[in-house]
Amino acid sequence: MPPETAAPSVPAPPAAARPAVAPPAAPAGTRPSPGADELAGLDALQTERTRRTPGAEVLRTKVAPPLVALLFALLLWQLLVAVLGPRPDVVPGPLDVARQVAVLLSDGTVLGALGTSLWRGVSGFLIAVAVATPLGLLVAQWQGLRNAVGPLISGLQVLPSVAWVPAAIIWFGLSDATVYFVVLMGAVPSIVNGMLAGVDQIPPQLRRAGHVLGASGWTMASRVVLPAALPGYVAGLKQGWAFSWRSLMGAELIAIGGSIGFGLGSLLAQGRTVSNMAVVMVAVLAILAVGILVELLFFNPVERRLLRGRGLLGHRS
């Protein structure tokens, strides 16, 4: 009997079979939104969720280790000085240096030198940016010019800019112009090279896409080439700043007197002249601190933001 109660289900097959045949008869147009849900589901499945690293983790993994390392180095230094007991004017301990910092801070020497150097470094760097950016664009876009001056620019990047100091002194005397000249010779090639690298690394299909969309000449440069070259350009800026700062210190160390103001390099030279190692250490630490702080507070955030926005930075780093 059960088989016969099951029998009424025989008319069912047409109904069951119909959907299998029906889809071709019901083309996409009849359903208001075919595939909309599937597509939304697929989108959700295929999109990664980006996770921001929580502040505590940043503190633990990024901030704490270098601070601990620094503290450890200072302790080791102090320990060595305490154990070996060298002459404090030859090998001062961290505490001697700290005392010297206090002295130089109270009479305004360090802050004055820091201010002078920082002002020169930053303004020299900005002039270098203003000179190198159009130059870099010109060289990047004009192949003939590139062939002509490309090797020279690479070469200039290798040449230590301190090598320009004697020439600068002969031309400009002991004036600020000498310092700026050396800074420019240090920074401009780096920034131009960064721009060239940035332009070279633009994926060809982005230019093609720009071309197809109707970009040409100015619109191509401003809407496609420049933004696409930005990561390389910023890397060049970062290196340009480092070269500015180094060149500046070299120039200040060598060219002293005349109308040149008193910078950190001058402080370094003064420390050497009076054989006061603590002063030399203070100057070195100040130079180092500026380098680290500018990198940490300015270039790193800018660069990371840029790369993250383009998906060039892993979520974890």
């Binding site: 994926p203 299909q205 982005l206 093609r208 896409a209 197809v212 969309l213 109707g214 970009a215 619109t219 809407r223 496609v224 933004p227 696409a228 930005l230 926005g309 383009r310 998906g311």
Partner: peptide, 25 residues
């Protein structure tokens, strides 16, 4: 023209990519 890879501008959001095409037209 549409390519095999999307060739979207990576520095622009999806909307700004479309808007740039509108701008260039």
């Amino acid at each position: 023209l549409m390519f095999q890879d999307a060739a979207l501008f990576p520095w622009l959001s999806a909307r700004r990519n479309v808007e740039l095409a509108l701008e260039l037209r």
